[in-house]
Design a protein around this nucleic acid. Sequence first.
DNA 1: GTCTATATTGGGATAGAC
DNA 2: GTCTATCCCAATATAGAC
Lengths: 191, 191
Amino acid sequence: MYSGSMSTSDRLIESTRELLWERGYVGTSPKAILEHAGAGQGSMYHHFRGKPDLALAAIRRTAEEMRAAAEGVLGSPGSPYERIEAYLRRERDVLRGCPVGRLTMDPDVIASDELRAPVDETLAWLRGRLAALVEEGKEQGQFAPALDSGEIASAILATVQGGYVLARASGSPAAFDTAVRGLLALLAPLG
Amino acid sequence: MYSGSMSTSDRLIESTRELLWERGYVGTSPKAILEHAGAGQGSMYHHFRGKPDLALAAIRRTAEEMRAAAEGVLGSPGSPYERIEAYLRRERDVLRGCPVGRLTMDPDVIASDELRAPVDETLAWLRGRLAALVEEGKEQGQFAPALDSGEIASAILATVQGGYVLARASGSPAAFDTAVRGLLALLAPLG
DNA sequence: GTCTATATTGGGATAGAC
DNA sequence: GTCTATCCCAATATAGAC
């Protein structure tokens, strides 16, 4: 399943990431992970204390990757609005959902402060990053000065997360794009 | 767990609704449902063909109830903006998530056209209802005529669904309210 | 209609050989 | 470090008594 240059531990983490994205924490069994990774029971319990420990490693890696991907778009050249638009319109595997956001619907993830932490931190970071951009846009006269940057950032992030929900409900990525276009229309720069 | 005036079948459905909301489809076992409903295996397999059949009955009931609740707010007197605002600000069990929307993150629900249908229909209905209100608001000069009603409706619905995600990630209902305030600021009536 | 077996498979983990 | 054997309990369903 993976290139031979990957350690067993890495293969386990990568397999867990895939399955968590596909089926969530509750729907992912150690057995499924082992089959996907082509490893035996012993390997997993040698490298990790158990399912929660392995899931934590997987979630952390997914969170880091997502931050990097978002920063790649939000940190690009362009006006604040353009960068927010680029983030909203960026290529996504819409029907698979957000690999970080979907974890919030997992009861066992939410019940564990350790597992929830990287999810919370990632979304909080994204919100802060967006808020800074909105603030910058306000200073440049691109957005109305009366807007609260934090609130707008939250609305942007919520639209993305909710866009996944609408897309998966309808079975079509178009639902995501429609919501994004609606938000962008409301957000459109002054003048 | 339930008043004695409820039939076994109803108790099973109500128990399933609670557990689906709390733990999702994958995380809800027939055994847990039976214990919650105070019924035996036989009862469940007498009234329903199995877990998917019972879940379908539960999801349909939840979907209907949600439509009724939304219509109660969206159909109230007031201007289009006021009614949309009332919908967005309405009392919600934010940290429990949306009992309909959360099902989109359930792999087994999405894999089944039958289980997904009531979810899709409910969100589509809500979107249509919101779009009609936006259209009305445009006619009354409350919203900019250039806005696409369907897109705005999608953005509103996505903000709500995403608001649940942000709230559950942070462990606080405030995150939901912040996103809603941001959207309302962007949506604020002309003049 | 409801109950109690019973069956089969899987979830999650430990033990100990190699 | 990795493997197989084993354990115990849960998931989902069927059979048949009452």
